[in-house]
Write a protein that binds this DNA or RNA. Structure first.
Lengths: 137, 137
DNA sequence: GTATATGCAAAACTTTTGCATCCTT
DNA sequence: AAGGATGCAAAAGTTTTGCATATAC
């Protein structure tokens, strides 16, 4: 599916700023980026865009399921493209490396726990913080 | 152990602002409070304190293990007393109710996952978001 | 008495919003 | 042509910091 189609499917007009933002998320070597990261990346590439647009577009993308928003650290959200393969995150507190892993049994367990407390489960956030092998002391 | 001893053990002087903040966290009917919540609670009770002190003290308390900091929602941290009994949180997105649950096997699983990726695990954040029974539609 | 903590105000950051203009459809 | 999107600047919300004063030990 083209980026254009993806936007239309989400009920969003295909505009230049939106295409630019998706392109950054698709092509950057870093997978998790903040609004400011994306803005800087574009400005440094001599692409014109406003920071307010980046924030507005990311919010729309999140609601449309195009990106996933994370709060790895307080006070700054980061976004990654939603590739439809659910995964969790391991974060190295020294070098910032982020390892993604998938564990469906874990997710099933979360659903079971919610149901045991008479909760419907919409989503969850799970982040493991530690130190990767090269940063271990 | 008295509050005084707890502070001293953490290498913190026993000061009036610190005692006031602990008292709020111990006695408030709400278990998870933001810095602003604690500040307002004190001001409304005609206790003198500065908001900057609340932030500074909460940061020290977190580092000392006296409180645990959470980012249930982006942009605002909440704190709870660390009662030394590890638990996770279920959050109702309608009414804001927070249910705590304990699951040591889940935590063991997280440690196993980290080790499988050659990570040392320092801590984790796990929040389940959904709707409680009375808010389910 | 000395080092540390506090309070105030100002600053720093991230994110949101009002509004005039521009772009998609 | 019309509604939606953008960009700028200003505002809002949370958290941090500089500095003079007050407090704990």
């Amino acid at each position: 599916m083209s980026t254009d189609d993806g936007l239309r499917k989400a009920g969003l007009r295909s505009t230049l700023p939106r295409l630019k933002i998706i392109s950054v998320l698709e092509n950057s070597e870093v997978r998790h980026m903040s609004a400011e990261d994306i803005y800087r990346h574009l400005i440094d590439s001599r692409e014109e865009i406003g920071i307010a647009t980046v924030y507005r577009v990311l919010t729309q993308f999140e609601q449309a399921g195009i990106v996933i928003r994370h709060n790895f650290e307080a006070g700054r959200a980061v976004y990654e493209l939603n590739d439809e393969s659910p995964h969790e995150h391991l974060i190295c507190m020294s070098c910032g490396e982020i390892v993604e892993f998938e564990d469906s049994s874990l997710v099933q367990q979360l659903a079971k726990i919610a149901s045991e407390h008479s909760f419907s489960l919409d989503n969850h956030s799970l982040y493991l913080y530690g130190h990767c092998q090269s940063c271990a002391h």
